[in-house]
């Protein structure tokens, strides 16, 4: 029968210690990298930051963040989230910026205080991303709205240094935060 030949092959490999050792090494390497690929692409990954554009939230070098791939293709992404995306102009490079507008929102096209103060509407299926360091960031102000399909994940936590969750910095104050209101009463 067909399974018999598989069994015979396994017996043949098991008979030779050298062959069985290298077969095992190959199995663990291939299997591990396959599972690793799935985990990194569909669950979480850790990636180092390089660049000045997200100062002061993330340092220019030396910081690493945890990227949740649940948010790939812009799923559940909200205004204020830091997202990692495939750069729409630079081939094969990734970038990390903060989402300032989702489809339908009106956003300022230029840097505040520069230009004519034109507001543009973010088109369907796109978002508007801007770096926190406005003067050293090349973002949607240059390349326009970013297709949500290019987003590969959201930065949910800082891995190194000072591990901790990254909070959404663009939530309206006191929106769903009772503790802050109590603090105000004390004043």
């Amino acid at each position: 029968m067909i399974w018999r030949s598989f069994a015979q092959l396994r017996e043949y490999i098991r008979a030779s210690p050298k062959l069985s050792y290298w077969t095992k090494v190959a199995e663990y390497t291939v299997g591990g990298s396959l599972l690793g690929h799935v985990f990194v692409n569909y669950a979480y990954s850790i990636s180092p930051i390089w660049g000045y554009s997200m100062i002061p939230t993330l340092a220019a070098s030396g910081d690493s963040v945890v990227i949740s791939k649940h948010f790939r293709r812009g799923r559940d992404v909200e205004v204020g989230d830091i997202v990692s995306f495939l750069h729409p102009v630079k081939d094969g490079e990734y970038a990390m910026k903060r989402v300032l507008g989702m489809p339908g929102d009106f956003v300022l096209r230029d840097t505040p205080g520069k230009g004519e103060g034109t507001m543009v509407q973010v088109p369907e299926g796109h978002c508007w991303v801007v770096g926190d360091n406005l003067f050293h960031s090349r973002d949607s102000r240059m390349f326009g709205p970013l297709p949500l399909a290019l987003i590969r994940g959201k930065a949910v936590a800082r891995a190194w240094p000072k591990p901790g969750w990254i909070q959404n910095g663009l939530k309206a104050p006191y929106e769903d935060n009772d503790e802050d209101e109590e603090v105000e009463d004390n004043d």
Partner: peptide, 20 residues
């Protein structure tokens, strides 16, 4: 990196810009 070598006439598959 064959993406950078995309040529005229090739039929490609891509994510819709308006629908992620």
């Amino acid at each position: 990196n064959l993406r950078s070598e995309v040529k005229r006439g090739q039929i490609v598959s891509f994510w819709a810009p308006h629908d992620p």
